[in-house]
Amino acid sequence: MNLDLLNSPAVLGVVTIVLGVSGCVGYFYFSNLILDKVIFPPRGRNAGRNINYANMVRPWLFLLPALLALGLYLAYPVFKTLHFSLTERVPGGGNVWVGAANYQQMLKEPKFWEAMRNNMLWLIVVPALATAFGLLVAQLTDRIRWGNIAKSLIFMPMAISFVGASVIWKLVYDTRPAEQDQIGMLNALYIFFGGSDPQTWLTIPFWNNFFLMAVLVWIQTGFAMVILSAALRGIPEETVEAAIVDGASPLTIFFKIKVPQIRATILVVWTTITITVLKVFDIVFAMTNGQWETQVLANYMYDKLFRANDWGVGSAAAMVIMLLVAPILVWNVRNARNEMR
C-alpha cells in the first residue's frame, strides 16, 4: 500500500474518528460490563448490596472522560496561566518566580492601556448595539408575514467566521485613490453624499475602533434577535391584549409591557455578548492587527505570547481577561444553582 496515503491527514482523520468513537463506546460499554459482571455481580448473598454499590460507582464511570478533558483543557490552564504570569522563563528551560513583575511591566506599557481603553469601548458599544438591533428586529418581524425570512437573513452572519466577516467588511471599507472610482461601499457613499477625499477608514485613530466593532455587531445581532424573539413570543398574549384594551399605544406596549417582561432574557443576551467581546481576537487580528490604536486585550496577549515570546506578560494579560470575565462567571453559576434547586 502507498505510504503517502497512510500519512495523509484525511486517512489520519478517518482513523482518529474510528478510534475515538470506538474507544469512547468501548470504554463506556466495557467499564459498565466489568462493573456489573466482575466487581459487583448482582448475584449471591450480597446481590442487593452489590447493586447499590455498582449504582454508586456508575455515575463516575459515565463522567470520567468528560471530567478528565474539562480538568485538563479548561481548569488546569487557569491555574497554570496564573503560575506563568508570576514567573519568568529562563534560557535553557525552567521558570523563576518574579512575583508581580510581569504585571508591573504590563501596566507600564502604553499598548496595554490602549488595549484596555479599546476593550472598554467594545464592552459598552457592541453589546448595547447588538441587543438593541436584535430587539428591534425581533419585535418588528414578529408581526409580518415574511418575518421568518427576514430573521433568517439577519441571522446569517452568525455562520460566517470572524475572518470571513473581516474580509467582507474590509471590502466595504476599501479605499482607492481620489481620481479613481471607489470600490468600497463606504467611500462610494461618502463621495456620493459630498465627501471630498476618500478616507482610509481603518487608519483614523479612535474612530477606526467603531468600524471594527461594526463587524461584531453585524454578527451578534442575529444571536440577540433569535433569543429575544423567542422571549417576546413567550410573553402571555393576554397582557398585551389587556394593554390594547386599556388604550396603550404600540410604543407604550413595547416599552412598558413587553420589555419589562423579558428583562431577564435581555440581561442574558447582554452578558453572553459581553463574553464574546472580551474574547474578540480574530477581527482585530485580521483587519488591523492592533495598529492605528485599535489594540484589544486578546490580540495584545497573542502579540506577547507568540510574537514577543514573552510568556510572563502574555499570561498576565490572559489573567486580566479572566478577571474581567469572572463576575459574569460567578453570576451564571449562582443562577444555575438557583435553578437546580
Binding site: P59, P77, T81, K279, F281, Y302, G314, A318, V325, R337
Partner: peptide, 23 residues
C-alpha cells in the same frame, strides 16, 4: 452532582486564551 453542574456552567465562560500556553 449539583456542584459539577455549576462547575460546567462556570467553565462555559472561561476564555480559551488562558489555555493556549499551558496546553
Amino acid at each position: 452532582r449539583a456542584l459539577l453542574v455549576a462547575a460546567v456552567v462556570g467553565l462555559l465562560v472561561v476564555p480559551l486564551q488562558l489555555a493556549l500556553i499551558p496546553l
